[in-house]
Design a protein around this nucleic acid. Structure first.
Lengths: 223, 223
DNA sequence: CGTGAATTGTGAATTTGGACACACCGCGAT
DNA sequence: ATCGCGGTGTGTCCAAATTCACAATTCACG
């Protein structure tokens, strides 16, 4: 039994938090956000679990990583829990985001309502193509990627979205990181090679379809 | 030691295959596809591992689920391995796909080159909005979702993409399943409730950004 | 044709993440 | 005020997945 040094869950719990837990946190948040407008005041771990297809213990364990949000005998108060999760995910603040690449996908992302709902606002859209620079996309004027550094100066932007062709993605990402972006959402189907200070999340849509085709062909009860 | 009953890895290995393995298979495929054009004939498990940030043992174990594709002392022949993986993922064939929802995102998806590269072709684009039905989107004429069943009749479509607002997603998905679609790529940020015969993969873009904001705020060495 | 270097495939060990079960806690009803 | 029910937080256990380590195999080269 170690002495209870600085291990009080409620503040800075230093037990490494698995990626999968943080991922589920987002899922809980979505579920709560769809529950609250229906007038649901409180929700129990087993209700949440049933809706998401997991176990109640899982739900409670996940929350326990970050503190004690529940009320024994009652469950979790939706609005409070939403607040807690947003605080954990750091979406209780607005995140300005830069988008690089205003092709089909990029343009769609600028107009995507789901981002703003969760606190992410694309405030800069950049492209390398002179034909595109200067045009209006969803209320934004496309800036020049070549002037990235000056475009970002003082903007407080730490998150960037890469929606450029595979061939350009690595270079774009490096330049973003050099300009102070530490989180990158990458839509190019290649593995970015960046310093460990940079956080990358890949969204490979073809990969998702591959998972589907595999699942469809191998009809089994293993989901 | 059990007798070698129908367990010859090479054909129908009946050891349940973890989802995560199939996911990595897609990643290997991308990496190989970017390697081959560079003239790389063979690749070793440790090379692949280094590029993807995993361990060599992991790479070999993953492949071992499906058979023995390697050549001791040599490694894996890229073109052969690509073929094997595509066969496993069932992307050695063309998959016709139906898209429902031709808003910003939907339109971008129709024009997305990455799909066709991996064998997925959106051959039907549908929408519920009479304003949109009949318009041209990336070479396709938008059809009416209301006529879903007749649109899909005899098309051999088993994969559908749901790119509609959250409120309509559940209904759309149910109707797709009823029309014979067994694999659904869902962009709506809600949990679809479907019979277990249906395979669903969720792509929640705001969730991905949440993972990023969490990572950016909690700068740790835990990725 | 034999030897050495390289690399696979895989059993064993280790780590990680998830399920179970239960003590404890509040609230509501009587 | 007390009792019982519903529900959380968590120690313990179990399963799954990752890493380790090594025998077996192939190719290159002399």
């Amino acid at each position: 039994m170690q002495p209870p040094l600085e291990q009080s869950k409620t503040s800075g719990s230093r037990t490494r938090i698995p990626k999968s837990v943080v991922r589920r946190l987002s899922a809980y948040l979505r579920e709560l956000q769809s529950l609250e407008p229906q007038g649901t005041e409180t929700v129990s771990s087993s209700q949440l679990a049933r809706r998401l297809g997991w176990t109640d213990a899982q739900v409670r364990k996940d929350f326990a990583f970050f503190g004690q949000f529940g009320h024994p005998g009652v469950g979790y108060r939706c609005s409070q829990l939403i607040g807690e999760i947003r605080r954990i995910l750091a979406t209780d603040q607005q995140w300005p985001v830069v988008l690089v690449g205003c092709g089909n996908l990029g343009q769609a992302l600028v107009g995507y309502r789901g981002f703003a709902n969760q606190g992410f606002v694309i405030i800069k859209a950049l492209d390398i193509d002179p034909e595109v620079v200067g045009q209006q996309v969803g209320g934004l004027t496309v800036g020049s990627f070549e002037r990235l550094e000056s475009e970002l100066a003082g903007s407080g932007i730490h998150i960037g979205i890469v929606a450029v062709p595979s061939a350009s993605a690595q270079g774009v990402a490096e330049r973003l990181v050099a300009a102070g972006v530490t989180g990158i959402l990458n839509f190019a189907p290649i593995k970015l090679n960046l310093p460990p200070s940079a956080h990358v999340i890949d969204v490979d849509l073809a990969m998702e379809l591959e998972q589907l085709s595999y699942a469809v062909v191998n009809e089994r009860r293993n989901d």
